[in-house]
Design a protein around this nucleic acid. Sequence first.
RNA 1: UUGGUCAGACGAUCGCUUGCGGGGCAACCCGCAGGAGGAAAGUCCGAACACGACAGGACACGAUGGUGGCUAACGACCACCGGCCCCGGCGCAGGGGUCAGGGACAGUGCCACAGAAAACAAACCGCCACCGCAAGGUGGUAAGGGUGAAACGGUGCGGUAAGAGCGCACCGCUCCUCUGGUGACAGAGGAGGCAGGGCAAACCCCAUCGCGUGCAAGCGCAAGCAGCCCCCGCCGCAAGGCACCUGUUGUCCGCAGGAUGGGGCGGGUCGCGUGCUCCGAGCUGUCCGGCAACGGCAGCCUGAGAGAAAUGAUCGUCGCCCGCAAGGGAACAGAAUUCGGCUUACGACCAGAUCU
RNA 2: GCGCCGGUAGCUCAGUUGGCUAGAGCACACCCCUGAUAAGGGUGAGGUCGAAGGUUCGAUUCCUUUCCGGCGCA
Length: 141
Amino acid sequence: MTAVPEPGCPRTPARRLRFGAAMRVKSGADFAQAYKLGVRDDARWVVVYGRANGCTHARLGLSISRKVGGAVVRNRLKRLLREAFRLRQHELAPGIDLIVVGRPHEFRPVADYEGVLVRASSRLAARLSPGTGSKPELPHG
RNA sequence: UUGGUCAGACGAUCGCUUGCGGGGCAACCCGCAGGAGGAAAGUCCGAACACGACAGGACACGAUGGUGGCUAACGACCACCGGCCCCGGCGCAGGGGUCAGGGACAGUGCCACAGAAAACAAACCGCCACCGCAAGGUGGUAAGGGUGAAACGGUGCGGUAAGAGCGCACCGCUCCUCUGGUGACAGAGGAGGCAGGGCAAACCCCAUCGCGUGCAAGCGCAAGCAGCCCCCGCCGCAAGGCACCUGUUGUCCGCAGGAUGGGGCGGGUCGCGUGCUCCGAGCUGUCCGGCAACGGCAGCCUGAGAGAAAUGAUCGUCGCCCGCAAGGGAACAGAAUUCGGCUUACGACCAGAUCU
RNA sequence: GCGCCGGUAGCUCAGUUGGCUAGAGCACACCCCUGAUAAGGGUGAGGUCGAAGGUUCGAUUCCUUUCCGGCGCA
């Protein structure tokens, strides 16, 4: 967990922490391919599927079903996960799509989701890179 | 229980998104402004809007159902009428609640069990008269008993062999007339001795209304692939020159066809744009009309438009509740074309009424 | 966003001119059969018919509202 920023002294990372449209997975085919061909990491409050995306940065895709809760609950969980991804985007393994599937649970602080994403990203990257020189070049979605 | 108000506030940092302005070849960056609800929900009704269908009529189907109003429209809303229930000691005046509240001589159907009998009317026990020694039979009666949710007006008196609206009084009911009311209906007067159960949220009849599908409607632009149709081998203005494949039994000429391919046309997938949100709503009024719903007038104020889908995250201060304190808590809930209602979920506060 | 189905015993399902006892199979309990099981036979228990309200003398059934599941439409 990073230090809580003092008031008036926000975190000043080396790079900007943006979250634009290019950092999201939008195509249904990308989701289907991640489910079918990608690797899976079982985190505590979510399940993360990984898939090489051919980009120079990580991308985030969210799948929050109605089992998680009502529209308010689902919106809030998506916002928390997006915030975690945004804050840790430079520490995540590049070139991997993270498809995050939510599970029903009590909300956690954003820091917990940050840890989950970073851990899942490193594990998925380790499983995707070794011995996968014949990894098919996936088209950029 | 009714009505109303709000939906913690402010600030900092980091973000998302729309519009405008500026910069950049571009990716993108900067500035300013805006950015969830009273129910955004359920999708139960009604409309706008769009496309399709459509001469008119009839049938079918669906919805509604006291009267009048309100409205763009409605099954919503308002007022009134009537029935039922409650309060008012009974009763009256009155007040409150509730009702899908047209039609049961247009027709069909159902009413289990019990009961003699459940809809044409009849008669189990009784009661009375007559016959008979008796058992019982014949006739009269529908008052009484009993069954049932419901049994062919109710109570009382007279009357009678016993009884019966058979007669009378009151109540109820039906019909007629008059009066009042736009009307549902109400009141008064008169006549009738009583007509004859319930169910139409059973089929149905009557009256009124309703075309179907829905923004994933629809309109425009339009990669790639495939299909259909047309043209084309290349150079050249043209004459002409050069050239691929197949067939014409071998070769050449000639003729016919084809062509991986190129171009065009229409339809149209991914996608993009549009529909898409500023001209209608809201608030206020010693204003006007109306009991009210609502309408009119005047003034003021106001801007979500996303599209794997924004409206957020963290921190601080203050305010509210619980707790001595540390600390904890703050409901229901997230726009998806837009409005008018209904229903459901739910926190706090204010005012009124009622109960304890 | 729009539309369409379903909810009955622990599970899977029946149940129409509204009334009869709300049934069937599996599962469960007990008994018989066997040296002991399984199978088989017999007996039995188990139901707010998703919830609320209404119509009716009477509702699983009819009507309205609501809750919870499921499906379809690009």
